Simulated assay, not measured.
Amino acid sequence: AKFERILKGETFSGTREYLDLDPVLILSYFYSPIVEIDGTISGITIFSYDITKLTLAQRELFESEKNLSLSNSTKDKFFSIIAHDLRSPIGGIKEGLDYILDEDNDLASEDSREFITELKEMSIHTFDLLENLLQWSQNQQGALDYDPKCLEVSPLITETVKVFKGLTQIKEICLSIDCTADTMAFIDKNIFVTIIRNLVSNAIKYTERGGDIKILVERDSYYITVAVKDNGVGMKPEVIPFITQFEKNISTYGTEGEKGSGLGLVLCEELVLKQKGKIWVDSEEGVGTTFYFTSPVCDGE
């Protein structure tokens, strides 16, 4: 049909890729009728050019530009966190301590204790953010230490959640752990702890006062599956695909105005993948959220 149309005076051009060849071949072609002086068409001229190198180079350049754009967006977000999410709490801690040390302040002993407790919680939040920034930047540069060992999971989780005792008491949240004592996994201790810390922190942030958070651990022949489940505010379905995309910046305030950077879940996904696991989420607005992630069991178990 194409040649019939060419013989009627039409021209055609395009490209064709031969992906089944090794190496790949990409050709540019041009079909044109041969028109005699009297206007009759006596044949077809076909021109074909090998544009493989040019096309592959263009695609590589496009991919590099896309990665550079993403890198710049990520860098901007990174500096935004440093400028705003770190500056505000550090400034608050400084001003709070200045006020306590001021001999003219009118704080009673109980008020002073409550004020110091608030400063402590602020410092914990700031320290966690700094830890996330450090680990995320190291991972981006390929410099994050990864030293997996066969470790018992239950004591790691128990020790990690102790840092949240003050926050759970303030929000009157019941945090429970359901993990068999001898559950073992092939994990990097620091990476595993960071994942748990971020998922629990996220759950506390979005759980209403008096709510419940459960950490559940199950295992099969190949993986352990850790679930961090809350009965908090949940998420809209259209939000879920973007929660681990750093450049989207969809982090929202918690149930009591807690501010987040959006970095925690991004880091969790990267670290879970580094441990050869996977991470996913089930969430329903107004019902709650459950984050799941897997880690390999120990060889020979």
Results as ranks from 00 to 15, higher is better:
1 A>C: 15
17 E>I: 15
19 L>A: 07
20 D>C: 13
25 L>K: 10
31 Y>Q: 03
34 I>T: 10
36 E>K: 08
53 K>C: 04
59 R>G: 15
60 E>I: 09
61 L>I: 14
65 E>G: 01
66 K>P: 09
67 N>G: 11
69 S>C: 06
69 S>E: 14
70 L>C: 06
70 L>R: 13
71 S>W: 14
72 N>A: 01
73 S>C: 08
74 T>D: 14
76 D>F: 12
82 I>T: 10
88 S>H: 13
90 I>T: 05
91 G>F: 06
103 E>Q: 07
104 D>Y: 15
112 S>C: 11
117 T>E: 14
120 K>C: 12
121 E>G: 03
124 I>L: 15
125 H>Q: 01
128 D>K: 11
129 L>K: 06
133 L>P: 04
133 L>C: 03
134 L>S: 00
136 W>G: 00
151 L>K: 09
156 L>V: 08
159 E>R: 14
160 T>P: 12
162 K>W: 07
168 T>K: 02
175 L>F: 02
182 D>A: 04
183 T>I: 11
184 M>C: 04
192 F>Q: 15
196 I>D: 00
199 L>E: 05
204 I>Q: 04
209 R>N: 14
210 G>T: 07
211 G>V: 07
217 V>F: 06
218 E>W: 00
219 R>H: 15
222 Y>F: 09
229 K>V: 15
235 M>D: 02
238 E>G: 02
238 E>K: 12
243 I>L: 04
247 E>L: 01
248 K>D: 05
249 N>A: 11
254 G>A: 01
256 E>S: 09
259 K>H: 12
263 L>M: 12
268 C>I: 07
268 C>K: 02
272 V>R: 06
272 V>C: 06
273 L>E: 07
279 I>C: 13
282 D>Y: 12
283 S>D: 04
284 E>F: 10
286 G>K: 02
288 G>D: 04
292 Y>S: 07
295 S>E: 10
298 C>R: 13
